[in-house]
Design a protein around this nucleic acid. Structure first.
Lengths: 224, 224
DNA sequence: CCCAAACTGTGTCCATGGGAATCAGTTATT
DNA sequence: AATAACTGATTCCCATGGACACAGTTTGGG
């Protein structure tokens, strides 16, 4: 993945035939495939076919598949929001919930953003928005970064878990099926799950969010 | 991925030639490749070549690549630990640090465990160990599960981030390079990073861990 | 004791993946 | 009008995961 591709403006050349496609259109076609059938179904061939063109045409618009996925992620995450809540805690809550919502809407973004990779402008914009709301707190720069990183990670984690739970009947991921057979080896898990059948990923997200912000608040007040 | 493969005991048949390989040996070869060159370098061909056999031999031991990765993850995560710390908070800290260490030792496990998939016995064992230490807290089953899920997710998140920071010179991921050029668009990020150049992933991990446990402790004491 | 059943690793084959190189056609500039 | 620059399409290559049939090896039942 080249950083320049995500950040540098691509100047449209003047000569030659008009391009039949656009980078945005290609990315949207990829997003449609990923939303419907998962990230694994996104191949150059598939995206090109959906657009009615050949696979190699796409390489006129992007250097390779890694860049396609990067652009897809940028568009799926979308422009950073304007936070309406007032107060740092309410703002961070709003920010976390919005980000969580984006992840839920496009669950494949999570697996697309594991490992080392350059961040896009939108992704950085999200960080910037959150940092602006905790600027004046008695936290160091590293602590401010860590705070929003942990919040974002929490949202990713839970969105992934929530997206995996499709069949509803199954309690959590595929744990339940195994526990029916080997439950006696995991009494704690069995007990915890028995009282947890109700409630979905949103509840787990809110629980962790509240715990995290409580922790941050405790630190902040201890320094005031 | 078949759940039976991870959980069902594979009975060694009596007839025919002695198998030249073992499932464990194959998995270890895969782990060696993944540790050295990343998960992407792990292919049936590569693992078989390293073992001195042909690709198709491996399919006598496992149904497919998904199962190979699953066994690799199980062995890399390893047996659940016995926690020596006393008290629920110290125990959760120890547990989180141990898990974080496993992730750091084999960073590829993180990308290998995104999305829906069955958990292995070891992975469930880790959960069981942690749950046993918070059994008597005034928390519901769902809350206990959420607590350790958030802790585990935090460790995963930070291990991934720490593993990406190899060059040391670069501050955080690949953010710094971009900020040198577009820094004016992200004043908050620039400011936060300026004071955060020191300290690595361990520090961020400890920060989030402390915040999370503070939040849990606040909830627990509020109910006592 | 022997032979067939059951199992082993190997070689061949196929579909799909990402990507390079090349080519004929199209368009704005000179 | 000629040319440089660009377009999409065609053909090719290599690596991947996996199906399948094959020949060799071990062991249990007659």
């Amino acid at each position: 993945m080249s950083v320049e591709f995500l950040w540098g403006g691509r100047a449209r050349p003047t000569r030659g035939p008009k391009p039949a496609l656009t980078l945005e259109g290609i990315a949207d076609a990829g997003i449609a495939v990923a939303d419907a059938e998962g990230l694994a179904a996104v191949s150059m061939q598939r995206v090109a076919t959906d657009l009615g063109y050949t696979k190699m045409s796409l390489y006129r618009y992007l250097p390779g598949k890694a860049e396609l996925v990067a652009v897809m992620v940028e568009r799926a995450v979308g422009e950073p929001p304007e936070l309406s809540a007032s107060g740092w805690r309410a703002a961070l809550e709003e920010w976390s919930r919005l980000l969580f919502g984006r992840y839920l809407a496009h669950p494949w973004t999570i697996e697309a953003t594991v490992g080392r990779r350059p961040l896009g402008p939108y992704e950085m914009g999200w960080m910037e928005v959150a940092l602006a709301r905790i600027e004046t707190l008695p936290l160091s720069g590293a602590e401010r970064l860590d705070t929003i990183a942990v919040l974002a990670g929490h949202g990713r984690m839970l969105a992934q878990q929530a997206a995996a739970r499709l069949g509803e009947a199954e309690m959590s991921t595929a744990i339940a099926a195994v526990l029916r057979e080997h439950g006696e080896r995991f009494p704690q898990l069995t007990a915890a799950l028995a009282g947890a059948a109700r409630g979905g990923g949103d509840q787990a997200f809110e629980y962790g969010l509240a715990r995290l912000l409580d922790g941050v608040e405790a630190l902040v007040t201890s320094r005031s």
